[in-house]
């Protein structure tokens, strides 16, 4: 083999590698700027004292901020509030989302319109959604209490009662995000292989048997994926609470992200808030890993 073609092939490979990296470089740079830098900066602040005069970390304090956060009863209370919200909102949205998807997927007139209408809550800004529900549920002017009054219920203090306020947050969030789950579930249902259903039908399976033994097992990977995606959205809950209850009454709906925001931007405790963010990030990543592992196991099982 002559050196000429070998050099030429080497040049080709180099050019290929360079062009690949050249195309990827802008994306890497943007990702580094908008994702890696804020995370690293947050990490740096979480181990420092922040000088408010310059907004620069001024002194390395080691694990002090983390110790302060982990000893703060208010931090754990907000984590508990977030846990309560997730424990109710996630299952409710998953069950409702898939149930609605089954109904929407059935062959009936007008389902296209219903599908389109279902998307509306998703495109409304969360702050607008919070404000909208605040008006609808207001005990003085809201239409919901008027309707409930017709059947002898209420008036209910949706945002003033601690238990009801959390239920209201779950309700608003469910209204907003169930369509998203429905959308994923509908796509999953439409992608299921028809021949399996035809075979089951020939074998005499009824509607329930097909749902229990064919549709649901085939949908498990979709459900797991929808759960993980929704989970990652739900742990960020902030704007709806900010727009509707401000974390109250008392601290009944003070979810962790609102707590961190208030500690940082109101309390000006940026270093401790950064430590809180890192703790929440680690817990979220650990739980997400557990869910992903679980979804993989479910996929293998079905």
């Amino acid at each position: 083999m002559t050196p000429g073609p070998r050099r030429s092939r080497r040049m080709e490979r180099l050019a290929d590698t360079l062009s690949r990296w050249g195309f990827m470089a802008p994306a890497f740079l943007i990702l580094a700027a908008v994702l890696a830098y804020p995370i690293l900066y947050t990490l740096e602040i979480s181990f420092s004292e922040l000088d408010l005069g310059t907004f620069m970390p001024s002194e390395w304090v080691g694990w002090d901020n983390y110790e302060t956060v982990l000893e703060d009863e208010r931090f754990w209370h907000s984590m508990k509030v977030t846990g309560i919200y997730l424990a109710f909102a996630m299952p409710l949205q998953m069950v409702l989302g898939f149930a609605i998807a089954f109904l929407v997927n059935a062959d009936w007139r007008g389902r296209g319109v219903i599908r389109a209408l279902f998307l509306i809550p998703m495109v409304i800004a969360p702050v607008v959604a919070g404000g909208l529900w605040r008006m609808l549920l207001d005990p003085l002017w809201g239409i919901s209490n008027w309707f409930l009054g017709l059947v002898g219920i209420g008036p209910l203090d949706w945002f003033g009662d601690s238990t009801l306020a959390m239920a209201t947050i779950v309700l608003i969030d469910t209204w907003r995000w169930t369509p998203f789950v429905t959308l994923i579930a509908t796509a999953g249902l439409l992608s299921l292989p028809r021949d399996v259903f035809e075979a089951a039908e020939i074998d005499g399976a009824n509607w329930w048997v097909m749902l229990r033994h064919v549709t649901l097992p085939l949908l498990v990977p979709i459900m797991a994926a929808a759960f993980v995606v929704r989970w990652l959205g739900a742990v960020k809950m902030f704007d709806i609470v900010l727009a509707s209850t401000l974390g109250g009454p008392g601290r009944a709906t003070n979810v962790i992200n609102l707590f961190i925001y208030q500690e940082a931007f109101r309390g000006l405790k940026f270093a401790e808030s950064a430590a809180m963010s890192v703790v929440v990030l680690v817990i979220t990543m650990a739980l997400t890993a557990v869910f992903l592992r679980g979804s993989r196991l479910l996929e293998q099982r079905y």
Partner: peptide, 23 residues
């Protein structure tokens, strides 16, 4: 004070707990 908002946030938290009947 330079930490006026921090004071205000503490008061907002605790006054809200009193008005809600929590404490």
């Amino acid at each position: 004070l330079a930490k006026s908002d921090a004071v205000q946030q503490v008061l907002a938290d605790e006054v809200a707990r009193a008005t809600s009947g929590e404490i």
